[in-house]
Structure formats: structure tokens, C-alpha cells
Design a protein around this nucleic acid. Structure first.
Lengths: 253, 253
DNA sequence: TCAAAAGTGTTTCCTATACACCCATGT
DNA sequence: ACATGGGTGTATAGGAAACACTTTTGA
């Protein structure tokens, strides 16, 4: 029932679209150039006004599609991030924001002058200033990411996809400051493989083949989402472009 | 800016009012008897429709005051709980619920035929059935409680108040299933005192006096909220009504 | 003085971290 | 071959759980 008898509040659904950059092994946030006032032309988180009878994930999808050119199929997962109700957050007037974090499939990100990727760090450092209270929202996303990554299986799986390398995990942990780069350029991350095994969540892909022969061939997994094979291709590239020993590839049990 | 040009969604703010029962050492939820349809006469979580320009905590306060007779001063803290947007959650039509968990000062709870206290367990077990999707919301609250209790200092402090006994902590942990009662009726919670010390958050109140002389006199703490002294009185009662050795009282550093 | 409840001393186990070393690749 | 990045073996420290025992109360 849509109610016009009473005054109703404006509710926006704002999304933090996160995606793993497979070249840099960093977590990035997608922002779209605004085509309306206020902040016309600036990059901001995708967000839309919630309409009646619309579910939150639907609104989030609509925001991602219209503001950051992400196709619905490339949205891997959507999680709750919280609510933001500072009355000054929008110059147009009080609008309560329901924030979501959406994991976007890595290969699916459109590079365009309308859509930009920024690293989580850039926002955390304040190097990148976003309009509205979007810096606050991204920071909340970063916090949630730190809490869930490698502690919630479903969350981690949605971020890493069906297959992933140790290298990517290392990159993300380094980004989060959870792994320190030693004085002598040696990574102090020697236990990562052990930790991954310790979770009991994952299996090594093709242990025999991945050494000696070629790092290009990986086992085909039961793809939960058909993005997997494409990611796999990207992975192969990313993996083979190193100097030292190539890192392991993992699948989910 | 109140907007009547577009159709706007209905947003409700629903609150899970939790409070520590100092007699049973259990966490309880306050529910109020509904005075409107639907579910007239049934006990439900307090909730109101969000009005424009109203902040979420204000709406939560309004809900607590009107539906469960809690005075604003007795609301110790309000935390985010999440959003619930199942379209069937309200028979009147789609309403998105923004849920909050509110910690209510123990002494402040009004016992009335309009307001009832139920234990968290009763809801979790399904012994207590609430209207709408309130069982789901309470369960989310229980989960959040389990995550934050004894791991977030501010959260824990808001729940336990300025002063508290080991006994209460034990009660809550037992309720959550985090402490098991041994086969021989002996509590397997021998490390509780150690754990509390280990947090570094708290100090023992009046170690010397609390033995030998009388368990009635406690140090006056710098009361963050003036409820403290009243709680203290209640505590004294609760503490002195046991058989064995009285439990310690703690204050926050 | 006995039962009940709370707290302490101490052991044991497990896991996180660290350090030293070995393996697989590109140039 | 050697520098670079990745992984394993093994030692060590710290914290959680367990168990036996002591302390403080009410009846």
C-alpha cells in the first residue's frame, strides 16, 4: 500500500561496489560520475531513491546498473552495511541512506569516463574525496570487509570467486595492513598457505600439474556462477606475469 | 524536503529493547501489547513509522516511549541491527523495517499488562511467537549480542552498566550457551574472573571490604549515567541472595 | 559442619607467529 | 646462475580450556 496521506521520508539505497583488481591484487571501489546536481560531474557511490514495493537488493541493482554500468549478472553478492541518517548528508534535504556492499565480478568492470575504480586505501587515506557522506560509507565498508574476509566463508568466497591464487589473498591482506612487508623485501607471509589450508574451506587445484609442466592448465570446477572460467583466464594471466615461483590456485570444497 | 510528488516507501523503525534481569541474570526483551490492528492485543516489538526529518534514534526513542513505556533517560544505548524488507512482513503492505537494538537500564523496566519481558531464549526456541517478522529480528539481535558481548567494550559496558558482578556475566554467558554446566552441577566457568581481568577493561571494586565485613558497601564510581547507584542497590540485593561465596563486583577503568 | 557458589593455581593443548631454509620461475 | 617470489619444517610464545583445590558464604 503506497501511502500519500502522511508525509513520508526519502530513503536512498547507496551501494559500495567492491571488486578485486586482478592486476594489482587490490580491492577497489567503483564510483560513477554524477549526471545530476548536486555534485554534477563528480564521482560518487551509486545510489537511488527507494521506491515503494521495491526490495532493497532491487534498488541496489538498479543503482549499480544505472550509475556504474554493472550488469545484474555480474553482481556476485550484496550485503548489509548499515544505515546513515546524518541530516546534513545530502544538501537537498534529509534523506536516510540504507547502505549495501556489493561484490562485483572482477572481469565485469567497465572502464569508461563515466566509471572509475579507486582503491580502498585511497578513500581511507582521504586521498580520494567523495561527495555526500560517501567517505564514511566506504570506510564502514572497509571495516566490514576486514571483519568478514577470511572469517566468513560465504563472504570470502563471493569476493575471491570460484578459483583464486594465494597471491591475491596476499595482496588483499597486505592492503588491509594485516601482513607486513619485511625490512629485506621479504614477505612476512610465509604462513599464508597454511592458514588457507587451516580454514578447511578450500582445496589446492591440480597440485601435480601446477608445477613443472605449465601454469596455464587448471582443473574445471563445478562453477557456481559461470564467471568462473573467465576469471580463470584472467587468473592465468595474472599468475604467469610474476618472476618467482607461481602461486597456488585454490578451489572451494 | 518532504516529497509528495513521488511515491515514497513506508519505512518503520523497529526496536529490540534488551535489558538484563538482575534477579535471573538473564537477558530479556521487552515487548508491548499492540493497541491497533493488525495483531491487536498481541505482544510485539515497539516500532513506529519513520517521519521525514526524523533521525533514526529519535524514531527508536519514540517507539520505546509509546509502545513499551520506557523513558528516554533510561535508554542506555542504541545500536544498528540491520534492515528487513521481506514484502510479506507486514500484512498491511510492503514496509521496509530499519531495526535497532536498544539497551534499557535494568531498574527502569515497567511491569504492566501492556508491557511484557521475555527471555531471549524463549524467542530463539520458538516458545514465544511474535507477530510480523519480529522473531527474525530478535534472532538477529541475539546473534549481534553474542558477537559484541565481551568483545566490544562500549557495547558490553552499556549492557552491564557502571558496576556489575561476575555472577551476571556468568548468567548471560550460560544463557548464550557459551558456558556449560558440568555433569556434577559444578559450573565449568572457573576462568571467568581471569577472563574479565584479561580484558583490561575492568577493576575489582573494593576487594578488601567485599569479604569479611559486609557485601553491602561498594565504592562510589564516577557515574557515567546516574542510574548507577540504583543498579548498585539492586546488585547488592541480587548478590546477597545466594548461598555460596558472593561474587565480585567490577567497575570500568 | 556441610553444601553451594566463587575464585585460584597449575597443567595441557592448540594456534598464531616467527625464523630458517628449500623450491620454482623469469631473465 | 641468480634474483625474485612462494612454500615448508620446525621452534616458540601466548591464550583458551580443563582439573584439582581453596575460600567464602547460608543453612
Amino acid at each position: 500500500m503506497s501511502n500519500t496521506e502522511y508525509e513520508l521520508p526519502n530513503i536512498s539505497v547507496d551501494v559500495v561496489p567492491v571488486t578485486v583488481n586482478l592486476d594489482t591484487n587490490q580491492l577497489e571501489v567503483l564510483v560513477g560520475r554524477r549526471i545530476f546536481e548536486p555534485y554534477l560531474g563528480e564521482y560518487a557511490l551509486p545510489g537511488v531513491l527507494l521506491t515503494p514495493h521495491e526490495r532493497l537488493v532491487e534498488a541496489a541493482t538498479r543503482a549499480l546498473e544505472t550509475k556504474t554500468l554493472v550488469k545484474a549478472d555480474d553482481i556476485v553478492a550484496v550485503y548489509d552495511l548499515g544505515t546513515f541518517d546524518n541530516p546534513d548528508r545530502d544538501p537537498r534535504g534529509a534523506t536516510v541512506s540504507i547502505a549495501k556492499i556489493a561484490v562485483i565480478a572482477p572481469h565485469a568492470v567497465v572502464e569508461d569516463e563515466r566509471v572509475k575504480r579507486i582503491t580502498l586505501d585511497a578513500v581511507a587515506n582521504g586521498d580520494e574525496q567523495l561527495p555526500f557522506d560517501h567517505n564514511t560509507i566506504v570506510q564502514a565498508a572497509a571495516t566490514l570487509f576486514g571483519e568478514k574476509f577470511l572469517s566468513s566463508k560465504t563472504f570470502t568466497k563471493s569476493v575471491l570467486g570460484e578459483q583464486f591464487t594465494t597471491k591475491i589473498v596476499r595482496g588483499l591482506l597486505t592492503q588491509m595492513g594485516r601482513i607486513t612487508t619485511d625490512s629485506d623485501h621479504t614477505y612476512d607471509a610465509s604462513n599464508l598457505t597454511r592458514q588457507l589450508k587451516g580454514t578447511g574451506w578450500v582445496d589446492v587445484v591440480d597440485e601435480a600439474d601446477s608445477y613443472g609442466t605449465s601454469s596455464a592448465v587448471y582443473a574445471t570446477t563445478s562453477a557456481a556462477y559461470d564467471i568462473a572460467s573467465q576469471i580463470s583466464a584472467a587468473l592465468t594471466t595474472a599468475t604467469s606475469t610474476g618472476r618467482g615461483r607461481p602461486s597456488r590456485t585454490w578451489t572451494w570444497k
